[in-house]
Nucleic acid binder design. Structure first.
Lengths: 243, 243
DNA sequence: CGAGGGTTTGAAGTGCATCAAATAGTGTGG
DNA sequence: CCACACTATTTGATGCACTTCAAACCCTCG
């Protein structure tokens, strides 16, 4: 229980919850461990619960009748998803699948809904989160339209956690390349070839999931030419909330 | 003044404004008539006012350093845009350009911001609008990724106002084909060819901006195969708010 | 060691963009 | 009402980016 409380409190959106609501949420929470490929919910299903990732990775996506898949996002630890049912409609806006061993907390949305109606601060916090999310989505559309494959990869890398030592920048891909490809809306083959091209163009070095470079500048200028914003254009995954 | 009041009250979001705030907005409003190509604001500019279209059409877009343009949306009468500055950051998320003789009402955002902070119902209404917008965006991403050019056009047509008589369905393109093409993220040439293909595939008949067909079924099944939702998948432009 | 998934590479195809040019439409001034 | 200018739309030819299909490779883990 205390563990769940700790995780909940780490979510920005929940900072403005009233104490009794928080208690209420915690009492109704359930923590489950899931393995790869577990489907948590399906697009357009009636949504009665929403989720919080304690650890692991979850893929959000939509699927056409023909089986083509559009990956919306891949979320790490600390992110909410499926909370949209608070609004009129109350169906999941996409499907969710665990892509790596994960601990997932599930919570009933009706508590969220009633909190939103009675707690003004919480409503404001929710608005704020939605606004941030919206910015992300706007950028996402732009990137998918304007950037080519190598640039999309570059832009993705630039927004990942970076580690700098002795003037060498190191980046670690957070999940396997096939998934990154899907996240960026391209085929694994295209990803592989585009990454090679990126190597040639910007001098980055790739060793499996590890990437390093002497400076991020070549990467930034190569990728960000095809973007409406200049380089430090915002981090991935800082909204604290994403579905 | 009374005219402005009437327009404001027709916007769903403003239904829950307190009377004094509404008065306040009306007093600070200015109504301007603009012609084609007038730029109302630029992406990342500090936003102090937001806008409401009384009549005409406005294009929202972003532009890269190289001049490539990504059209976000093209809004008709009755829509808000540029209201995002209410949130932290307070810059316009894209540029706005008038694409046809238009009457535009401009309003100061700070009134909106303070109303949001003091009026819980208004905050809830805002949340609702944001949620609707978000659904649109989600669909937008999906369409751009999964649908090909003729299907995107078909899907666009299906979401326009339809007029039915004697079993014949008539649709009228709301603005010129070049703009529709941009709105759908394709070149005018591609639009033209894709529309021809759509004619061959679904039996629709095209006369300039007028399109008619004996039934929407062939169009729906051709277009909606490449979509995660089934046919009546929501109208365009019913959010009442879009930037 | 061997099976299976992840990754890379090659060859060929598709869809859309681009460039170029013809055609249709629209509004203007005479 | 006509001719001109200008813009929108269509059509053709070609190129590039990404996909698809196929096969090899590599890595990891039982």
């Amino acid at each position: 229980m205390d563990e769940i409380r700790k995780v909940l409190l780490s979510v920005p959106l929940f900072k403005s919850l009233q104490e009794d609501t928080l208690e209420n949420l915690i009492r109704s929470a359930s923590l489950n461990t899931h393995t790869k490929k577990k489907i948590l919910f399906i697009h357009e299903e009636k949504a009665e619960r929403f989720f919080l990732i304690k650890s692991g990775w979850v893929k959000l996506f939509r699927e056409t009748l023909e089986g083509d898949q559009a990956v919306i996002d891949i979320l790490p630890q600390g992110h909410l998803f499926g909370e949209m049912s608070v609004f009129e409609g109350g169906v999941y806006p996409y499907s969710a699948e665990v892509v790596d061993k994960s601990e997932i907390i599930s919570l009933p949305t009706n508590i969220l809904k009633s909190e939103m109606e009675k707690n003004h601060d919480f409503a404001l916090a929710f608005l704020d989160v939605m606004a941030k999310y919206r910015n992300r989505q706007d950028n996402e559309i732009e990137h998918r339209v304007i950037q080519n494959a190598p640039q999309r990869i570059g832009c993705f890398l630039l927004r990942l956690e970076k580690e700098e030592k002795d003037g060498i920048v190191r980046i670690h891909l957070p999940y396997d390349k096939t998934l990154v490809a899907a996240r960026l809306g391209m085929q694994p083959e295209t990803f592989s070839r585009a990454l090679s091209k990126l190597k040639k163009e910007t001098g980055i070095r790739v060793q499996g999931a590890y990437i390093e470079m002497d400076s991020i500048d070549p990467l930034a200028s190569y990728s960000c030419i095809a973007c409406s914003s200049e380089f430090p254009c915002g981090d991935l995954g800082k909204t604290g909330c994403s579905s």
